[in-house]
Design a binder for these strands. Structure first.
Length: 599
RNA sequence: GCAUCCAUAGCUCAGCUGGAUAGAGCAACGGUUUUCUAAACCGUAGGUCAUAGGUUCGAAUCCUAUUGGGUGUACCA
């Protein structure tokens, strides 16, 4: 069952009538798609507007005359259309107030408002996908929040969603940390050092790099080129040997690997919990890195791949504007794309999903283009459901973050800084004297994380994002705390007024702002659907901001609602407030943000 | 070199499949509290939508070129 809100119904109704009008008045068939209905701009009378320029071709009249023809027809034929005015080529329609009140009573106040019908689709969202050689940084935070939110949006949009995390737990980079720890760690553990496990391992990753660089420099002094030195440094050779030992199931190496990965997982668990993200299933590359060779055989058999003289296997994508791409090394070992081919097949076999979203940075655009194209060429029907949600890098004012150069914003540090800032700001306002310690801590957490999450999610995922560590994230204006505050304020109001949901009389008079609220609040279900469709928490964030802003305007305009003596008016205003609060709460939840009852 | 993404106010960003006079927030300046939470509200100021062409009744939006930036172009992942 497709989503159908009152707003959609009336738009369809008007569109259909306009088509009919063109038929009757001008004896022409106009396609519905030519008739766009939009909100009427605030400075004009009316709520809905038809742009009539496209109709002029059919009417052979001026835009004004055409608009007037249509306006007269719509007033005569649609009950809800009470009046119209024409400004240039724009036909502004006034919709009966009773219609909007009916929408409030029967749609917005309904308990299942904002709950979309199932669309029967199964969707996988793969996100996070960390390396186990270093702690999470701000770039990972963006990935995690995006992936989580997109998954929640898809669920809210009616899909069945599986969140999965493909952990990159093996490879040369992991061996680097392991080797450095073995050489210089003196048996240091999270317990002995008090360091969080992922940070401890990350420390040795950095040490490896430092020592490796020293060796490279030494070799360069001996006359080797940069490239030679990088290849010949003893440390890298040791790391490579360790990787081979790992692949050969060397007991000692595997044990070390288990131990250090265990530390990292314990650390990640804390970070994930702080960020409020979760997964339905974990995949580990240590289990999947050998996959894909069957797929390679399949491709060879189908003639999609070809073998070079040295035995390496390739695909020629030059006809598609891409390059030739290696899919299997001459020695029969996998490359990145080999395992991704295999993993894609495995994930599909596991879940039989209709769509699969990979939340991965835009530096891998090319890789996914190739991956999806190959799967398609292999005749995988499900390949058309694959989608790379490619998000932009998080940059610092100084440029890109680099773990090895220490210019990263650490995820755990950032989270604690945000909580600390929330604490300071909240204490400065002094509104929560009666909170228990536990309530205070929960509030600081919710506000701090709310500010952070909103900050990262409000910008279009595709765009790169600038984070300036020297400027703290705002708590005022278009921010998470602003929306949280609006919610808390409404809840306080509803409590004081002992609010009970009830319909309002059909003949009540609405102020301009109240009418605007009904119109804006009524768009919520469509906002969910569109945010889910476009995989964009940003559109939801911006919508929620509009809602909060409009409420605050309304709240200031209107005399104290609690003291309102006109019962119908009081009910109307409380209903509008309550619907606003519900939308803010459930919408923010889709962003992974908790809104407090008081703050 | 080739591929690909991006360029909107001092800063950070909205602007949906082309529609009315391009909008917010921050920063700046001014105002609002005996009234339901001032993390709020109202106002002032701030723009050649990178540049040049083109398509169109109409372009920030679509097309082409140019400039400037990001990323990729590994038998790394």
């Amino acid at each position: 069952m497709p989503l159908e809100t009152n707003r959609m119904k009336i738009e369809q109704h008007i569109t259909a009538a306009a088509v009919q009008a063109v038929k009757e008045l001008y004896q022409q068939e106009i396609p519905e798609t030519q008739l766009a209905i939009q909100d009427t701009r605030a400075e004009f009378e009316g709520q809905l507007t038809i742009v009539v320029f496209p109709v002029v071709r059919f009417s052979k009249k001026s835009p004004e005359a055409t608009a007037t023809d249509l306006g007269e027809y719509l007033v005569a034929n649609i009950e809800e259309v009470t009046a119209f005015n024409v400004v240039k080529g724009f036909l502004n329609l006034s919709i009966a107030e009773s219609y909007w009140i009916d929408q409030l009573n029967n749609e917005l106040l309904s308990p299942d408002f904002g709950i979309l019908p199932s669309n029967g689709k199964k969707v996988m969202v793969e996100y996070s996908s960390p390396n186990t050689n270093k702690p999470l940084h701000l770039g990972h935070v963006r990935n995690n929040l995006l992936g989580y939110s997109v998954a929640e949006l898809l669920k809210a949009g009616g899909s069945e969603v599986f969140k999965v995390n493909l952990v990159n737990d093996r490879g040369i980079h992991i061996c680097k940390s392991m080797l450095a720890w073995e050489k210089w760690g003196n048996g240091e553990t999270p317990e002995s050092s008090g360091l969080k496990g992922d940070h401890l391992v990350g420390k040795y990753y950095v040490i490896f790099d430092k020592e490796y660089k020293k060796q490279i420099d030494a070799l360069k002094l001996e006359g080797q080129t940069e490239e030679e030195a990088k290849k010949n440094a003893p440390l890298i050779k040791e790391a490579q040997a360790m990787l081979l030992a790992w692949e050969a199931h060397d007991e000692h190496v595997v044990e070390l690997w288990r131990k250090m990965n265990g530390w990292v997982y314990a650390g990640f668990e804390v970070s994930y919990k702080n960020l409020g993200v979760d997964f339905d299933k974990f995949y580990y590359e240590s289990n999947t890195y050998l996959l894909g060779k069957d797929t390679v055989d399949e491709g060879l058999a189908k003639g999609v791949f070809f073998k070079k003289e040295d035995g390496s296997v390739w695909i020629d994508l030059t006809a598609d504007g891409l390059d030739q791409k290696l899919v299997l090394r001459a020695d029969g070992t996998s490359v990145y794309i080999t395992q991704d081919l295999g993993t894609a097949q495995m994930k599909y076999d596991d879940f039989k999903m209709d769509e699969s979203i990979y939340v991965v940075g835009n530096e891998q655009d090319y890789h996914f283009k190739v991956l999806f194209l190959i799967l398609d060429k292999l005749g995988k029907g499900w390949a058309k459901g694959l989608y790379h949600l490619s998000y932009g890098m998080v940059d610092l004012p100084s440029g890109k973050m680099k773990s090895r150069e220490g210019t990263v914003v650490d995820a755990d540090d950032l989270v604690s800084e945000m909580i600390e800032t929330a604490r300071q700001k909240t204490e400065a306002l002094g509104k929560i004297a009666d909170f228990s310690e536990a309530e205070k801590e929960a509030l600081y957490y919710n506000i701090g994380l709310g500010a952070l999450k909103y900050f990262l999610l409000k910008v279009d995922p595709k765009k790169r994002l600038l984070f300036d560590p020297s400027e703290s994230i705002d708590f005022q204006g278009n921010t998470g705390p602003f929306i949280q505050y609006t919610h808390a304020r409404i809840k306080s109001l509803l409590n004081k007024a002992a609010y009970q949901s009830a319909p309002v009389p059909a003949d009540i008079t609405l102020s301009a702002t109240e009418l605007d609220m009904i119109i804006l609040l009524g768009k919520y279900p469509a906002e969910i659907a569109s945010a889910a469709k476009s995989f964009s928490p940003a559109t939801m964030a911006n919508y929620l901001y509009e809602v909060a802003k409009l409420f605050n305007k309304f709240y200031h305009e209107v005399p104290p609602i609690v003291k309102e003596e006109d019962a119908a008016l009081k009910q109307l205003r409380l209903d509008l407030s309550s619907v606003t609060a519900n939308i803010l709460k459930s919408g923010m939840r889709l962003l992974g943000i908790t809104v407090p009852e008081r703050m």
